[in-house]
């Protein structure tokens, strides 16, 4: 049994006890009234007094059971009903026939207050609603960013294939076509053509591998984030030290985004920073993957200049990730990226 249900049971017991005590007192008053000669029926007022706390408790309780965000209003409504009932009871007990129907005025007042509350409740968003609206705005923006990134990626892949592998295969076909013709006429140039065709085929394969690496590097699937970054570091002109403390496997989409983010950062290090050395530090704490890329280069990098890091930022935003850059003139440059995610079980 959960805590709410337990509280509910306890409350019911207390209420039942209260009700029994009240009924007891009420009966006692009735007996005293009868013994005292049964004149003006005053115990009714005592009963009213006993009923008020019980009714208020039930009313508040009902209000609290309403769906989240509507509880205050529901409690207010229930209490208003109880107060109206009390006023009516007083009017009846005071001898309904002898007085005008005065409770109409206080009940009207209570109703106006209740309607006012309801209107305010309806018109003004709650803190929760504001938070949700902000969240929707963020999601809308990051989703658009993600789609932009994706479209740019697809365009890049298409162009790489068109200018790379596809063009080389066309050239191979051309050469082989010409070779076919030369077979009898000019055996010497035939040899050259065939050699060129073979070279083009190999280069086309290289191009295809490059494109595939750009889509999803096989080493990332094989070795995870740390291994893939180590593999990447080996191919770079600048020495890179990689350290990692991640007690498990990062989810594939985050892994891919983090990998390409590091690729971009390290490419910047090689191309722009003039650094002699770079550090990549991977960590995971309190449900957040942190990736830090640091170099001892010239600094002066910015998130706005060039689309590289901005693209990274948009890619990370999809996962609610953030990127911060400190790069004073003269260096060092530190890019810190954080992405909330859950790790799967540690690698064995």
């Amino acid at each position: 049994m959960d805590r709410a249900a337990l509280r509910d049971v306890r409350w019911r017991m207390i209420l039942r006890l209260e009700a029994s005590v009240s009924v007891g007192i009420g009966l006692l008053m009735l007996i005293i009234w009868a013994l005292a000669g049964a004149r003006y029926f005053w115990p009714a007022w005592v009963w009213l007094g006993l009923a008020i706390p019980l009714a208020l408790q039930v009313a508040i309780r009902r209000g609290r059971r309403a769906p989240k965000g509507h509880r205050l209003l529901a409690a207010h409504g229930a209490i208003t009903c109880v107060l109206a009932a009390i006023l009516l009871a007083i009017w009846v007990l005071a001898g309904a026939a002898r007085h005008p129907f005065w409770p109409v005025w206080p009940i009207l007042g209570l109703s106006v207050v209740l309607v006012g509350h309801a209107w305010i409740r309806h018109a003004l968003p709650t803190a929760r609603e504001q938070a949700l609206a902000e969240r929707v705005a963020v999601l809308t923006r990051t989703r658009r960013g993600a789609l932009d990134v994706q479209a740019a990626e697809l365009q890049r892949i298409e162009r790489d294939l068109h200018d790379g592998a596809q063009a080389r295969l066309v050239s191979v076909a051309m050469n082989l076509g010409l070779a076919e013709e030369l077979l009898s006429k000019d055996p010497q140039s035939l040899t050259d053509l065939l050699a060129e065709a073979r070279t083009s085929t190999l280069t086309a394969l290289d191009d295809l591998r490059t494109v595939m690496r750009g889509i999803q590097p096989p080493v990332l699937a094989d070795r995870g984030l740390e291994g893939a970054i180590r593999a990447l570091a080996l191919d770079l002109a600048v020495p890179v030290t990689v350290s990692s403390e991640i007690p498990g496997r990062v989810p594939v989409p985050v892994e891919s985004a983090a990998y390409f983010a590091v690729c971009e950062c390290l490419a910047n290090v090689v191309k722009h920073s003039g650094a002699l050395h770079a550090l990549v530090d991977l960590g995971y704490r309190d449900g957040v993957l942190s990736v830090q890329v640091r170099d001892n280069g010239a600094g002066g990098a910015s998130l706005t200049a060039g689309s590289g890091l901005r693209g990274v930022a948009r890619r990370l935003e999809v996962f609610d990730g953030t990127i911060t850059l400190t790069s004073p003139a003269g260096g060092p440059t530190v890019v810190r990226m954080e992405v909330p995610c859950e790790l799967s079980s540690p690698r064995t």
């Binding site: 080389r168 066309v170 051309m174 013709e181």
Partner: peptide
């Protein structure tokens, strides 16, 4: 624009 193909075409036509 791709030199590889430009050369290939040139060679074929000249042949």
């Amino acid at each position: 624009d791709l030199a590889l193909l430009r050369d290939g075409l040139t060679r074929i036509l000249r042949a």
